[in-house]
Design a protein around this nucleic acid. Structure first.
Lengths: 126, 126
DNA sequence: CTAGTTACTTGCGTTTTGCAAGTGTCTCGT
DNA sequence: ACGAGACACTTGCAAAACGCAAGTAACTAG
């Protein structure tokens, strides 16, 4: 797994100047947007993310949190000392991904049988 | 690479009933939505997809076209016999992904410096 | 008969993913 | 003071996905 010190912006190799391509290079994988979904639903800690029904592996979770932080989509802060515990929260930039989430959810609801809108009621309803 | 006969619906293992998760399992990778973008911009052939600036590898392209067809997002049809040449086009379901593309493009434009809205003018403007 | 075009497939080395287990820090109960 | 437990990760390793280059198949045009 990639070794990168927390909170330093990585210069991603740019495939093209396309806004869609560049966005996908940041959040275009199977897990990143699920974490954003969870945060929009109010989750904030490592442990809470692990509880989601999709079952993200712990190493992937740690990696994605680091990436999202580096991209300025989320921010990490200690919510208590002794012992130190961290909370993750969406930045303004991250909150704006709500529109993407909503579009994805709407598409799934219309086009995939048996899918449900929310796991946590009231999270990203219109 | 996965061996699957064309146009048969694959039963994807369902990570959860969440609409977002299920949508991501279909199109949540670095290439699928770029193909949808290209089709919204009017591209239809294998050769045209290869011309896009991101430079998709040929085996990935063939695989993604097959997947998207299996999910009912695009449809393949021969646009000429002798020699047989194929055209790919979005289905109604695929066209509805335009909303996702627009959300992703808007986010990129606002949050990633140096990104541009379109490669082909008039493709998926509001 | 040779070259060119289109649409792929195949091989293979590299990277990413996923599962399980382990580590470090600190609290609490006895 | 000691052991169990919670939290937030890290490490090792096998399996899957990706990416590059080259090869194949079905024609057409010269």
């Amino acid at each position: 797994m990639k070794k990168a010190n927390r909170a330093t912006k990585p210069e991603l190799p740019r495939r093209s100047p396309c806004a869609v391509a560049n966005t996908l290079d940041r959040i275009g994988d199977k897990w990143s947007l699920l974490l954003v979904r969870d945060m929009l639903a109010g989750k904030t800690t490592y442990g809470q993310f692990l509880e989601s029904p999709e079952g993200i592996p712990t190493n992937i979770l740690a990696d994605r949190l680091k990436r999202l932080e580096q991209f300025g989509i989320i921010a990490r802060s200690a919510y208590q000392e002794r012992p130190v515990r961290y909370a993750y929260a969406l930045t303004e930039s991250g909150r704006q991904l709500g529109r993407v989430l909503r579009a994805l959810a709407d598409w799934g609801l219309e086009n995939i049988a048996g899918t449900k809108k929310e796991l946590v009621p009231g999270s990203f309803v219109r």
